[in-house]
Simulated scan of single mutants.
Amino acid sequence: MNTAVAEKKPRLTTSAMIASIAAEGQRVKAAPFGKALVELAATRPDIVGMTADLAKYTDLHLFAQAYPERFFQMGMAEQLLMGAAGGLAKEGLVPFATTYAVFGTRRAYDFIHQVIAEENLNVKMCCALPGLTTGYGPSHQATEDIAMMRGIPGLTIVDPCDALDIEQAVPQIAAHQGPVYMRLLRGNVPLVLDEYDYRFELGKAKLLRDGADVLVISSGFLTMRALEVARDLAADKVDVAVLHCPTIKPLDEAAIVEAVRYRHRLVVVAENHSIVGGLGEAVASTLLRHRVQPAGFQLAGLPDAFLDAGALPTLHERYGISREALGARIKRWLD
């Protein structure tokens, strides 16, 4: 009798929590936020790092290793995290407070509003898993965080596209006087903007490429998707411009108006956020107030719904923000 036992192959699993948005073979940089903060803190002894039990999952563990005496682990208590960050800011320090975006906004909103923003304290809130960057379902998908934070007076909001955006944003938000909320991409983050002679400037939008048929106004990793779609549609003789808006508040209204006025082309706002209260509505308001009427206007964001759990590629396709789905939507709107 043959008693040989077949060798079991290891089961391959992917965590929906820390899944990467990078495509297979795409250039990435590991932990750009953590590395940029460590580098900046070498010359800024006033910078401290804080987290609510999520240092590893916001890349703040690199700061903790480099500057253990300037690192504060607050436990699973986001309200305490934001309240303590406000207290440290009152003592002249510059706290970088990290957690997941859902916890930093939903659970700690009142503390951000009353403790930090009302007194214009110098707290930098860097929150991971924004929008649909995790497959863990509504409990961890911060699809409404920008809508919530836009309503807080004096709060600056940053939604970086890639590793380069994050690296360059860190010293600028540290230098900015006042509270900042930055949507954080962590782990192996795609690197795309270095191909476009790009430099992050707080409060400024950047036209990455021009085009006669469509203007995509985007933020976050949807700018990466827009650039991919622009290359794809070029094969179909569709000319796509991409205007990247890494700062959601204050919005670069002058750049948006300039890009839309006197140009007869479809305007599409693409964002990793609900169509309610995000970049799309901010752009629409800007155009209306400046009496600028585009040839057409569409929102390519996430639906006003509680989204499903699952694998990110499946969810991005389902909700229209994958490369293929976004390209198909734009072609349909052009018909």
Rank of each mutant, 00 (worst) to 15 (best):
125 M>D: 05
273 H>N: 10
291 R>S: 14
61 H>S: 14
138 P>F: 07
276 V>T: 11
332 R>S: 14
66 A>Y: 07
6 A>E: 10
124 K>Y: 04
205 A>M: 11
119 E>V: 12
214 V>K: 02
281 E>C: 09
105 T>L: 06
248 I>C: 06
123 V>S: 07
160 P>T: 04
333 W>P: 03
152 I>N: 04
137 G>F: 08
11 R>L: 14
28 V>H: 05
313 P>Q: 02
141 Q>T: 08
193 L>Q: 04
199 R>F: 08
150 R>D: 11
171 P>N: 01
130 P>V: 05
257 V>E: 11
221 F>S: 11
192 V>R: 10
4 A>N: 11
202 L>F: 05
182 M>Q: 03
272 N>R: 05
180 V>L: 03
329 R>V: 08
181 Y>M: 03
155 L>C: 09
317 E>N: 12
329 R>D: 11
152 I>S: 07
139 S>Q: 07
125 M>W: 11
257 V>P: 01
49 G>P: 07
7 E>M: 14
300 A>S: 08
18 I>M: 11
167 E>P: 00
60 L>Q: 03
210 D>K: 09
55 A>G: 02
167 E>N: 04
55 A>P: 01
99 T>V: 12
42 A>K: 15
335 D>A: 14
196 Y>H: 10
321 I>N: 00
161 C>D: 01
324 E>S: 13
37 L>C: 06
46 D>T: 14
75 G>T: 09
282 A>W: 05
216 V>T: 05
77 A>M: 09
220 G>Q: 01
255 A>E: 09
36 A>Q: 11
119 E>H: 15
62 L>V: 06
169 A>Y: 02
215 L>T: 06
321 I>E: 01
312 L>P: 07
20 S>T: 14
215 L>E: 06
57 Y>I: 10
204 K>D: 06
330 I>M: 03
254 A>R: 11
321 I>Q: 04
97 A>P: 06
215 L>I: 09
103 F>V: 09
220 G>R: 01
314 T>N: 12
294 P>S: 01
173 I>G: 00
